[in-house]
Simulated scan of single mutants.
Amino acid sequence: MNTFIITAGGIGKRMESDLPKQFLLLKGKPVLLRTLERFYEADPTAQIFITLPNDWIDYWNELLSKYHCQIPHEIIAGGIERYDSVNNALKKSTGTIIGVHDGVRPLVSLKTIKACIAGATQKGSGVPCLPAKESIRKITPEGSSSCIRREYVLVQTPQCFSAELLKKAYQLPYHSAITDDASLVEESGGIIHLVEGNEENIKITTPVDMKMAESFL
């Protein structure tokens, strides 16, 4: 069985909205609901957790009722950091493959989800990425220096791992250099296997991102 942990703990400061970005309407439907529907479509038998701030759990339940959503899932109270939220969900996870996804990435493709699961099943991990299109420079004490673009990729979610590998990684203590689950798994000694992501799988963080997501739909 697969387990999906959808993290939705943001409060949307960069979205310039009083409503957290995961609840904003994207073509008439809340962003987070679109994300939930996508993962249910990918695997209707999966165990699904959504991590939410305590203060917004009741609001989410109201949205589920309003949009007549009956997709089975469990709400997990989020922690101070994303690390804490995922860790809370991991304690209840029973899947042999566990995927962690940003709730504000509603346009992940079924192909990407299945490629991540396959990577985790075959190699222990499956992390989606896209090649960098822009020129890249590294900030240095002297100013900046150019980088070889083909040596870098842009990382997305869901990041999928064998349950054993991910739970082992989350035994490490939190620190600020942990930027995603892949970085934590790598720190614990795991090997990260990359798979192809999809261009539409953007993380909705700003009003411009919302406009892009609307155009993709």
Rank of each mutant, 00 (worst) to 15 (best):
K21Q: 12
G95T: 13
Q22M: 09
A120C: 08
G103Q: 08
I117G: 04
I57L: 10
L107F: 06
I50Y: 13
E37A: 09
Q22A: 10
T112M: 12
D84E: 10
K66Y: 09
L26R: 02
Y67E: 03
E62C: 08
G95K: 08
L36C: 07
W56A: 09
I50H: 13
L52G: 01
N61G: 09
D102P: 08
Y59L: 13
D18Q: 15
K27S: 10
I75V: 14
K111F: 07
I57E: 14
S85D: 03
V86T: 12
A118M: 04
G124K: 00
K21W: 03
L32N: 00
S17T: 11
L19Y: 02
L32A: 05
L107V: 05
H68R: 05
A89F: 04
Q122A: 13
A115G: 03
R82M: 07
D102Y: 11
P44W: 15
G119W: 05
R38V: 15
S17L: 03
I75Q: 13
T45S: 09
K114L: 12
Q70L: 14
C116V: 00
K123V: 15
I97R: 06
K29P: 01
E41V: 02
N87E: 01
I113S: 08
L32W: 02
G78I: 00
V108I: 12
A89H: 00
L110D: 11
T51V: 14
P44E: 05
N88R: 01
T94S: 12
G95F: 08
K29A: 01
L25H: 12
Y40K: 13
Q47C: 14
R105T: 08
L19M: 14
D43S: 15
S17F: 07
R105H: 04
I76M: 04
T35M: 01
S109A: 10
K27V: 11
P44F: 15
L26S: 02
W60F: 06
V31L: 00
K66C: 12
Y83C: 00
L25N: 13
P44C: 07
G103K: 11
Y59E: 09
E37M: 07
W60P: 01
R105Q: 11
I57K: 15
I48A: 07
L52A: 01
L63E: 10
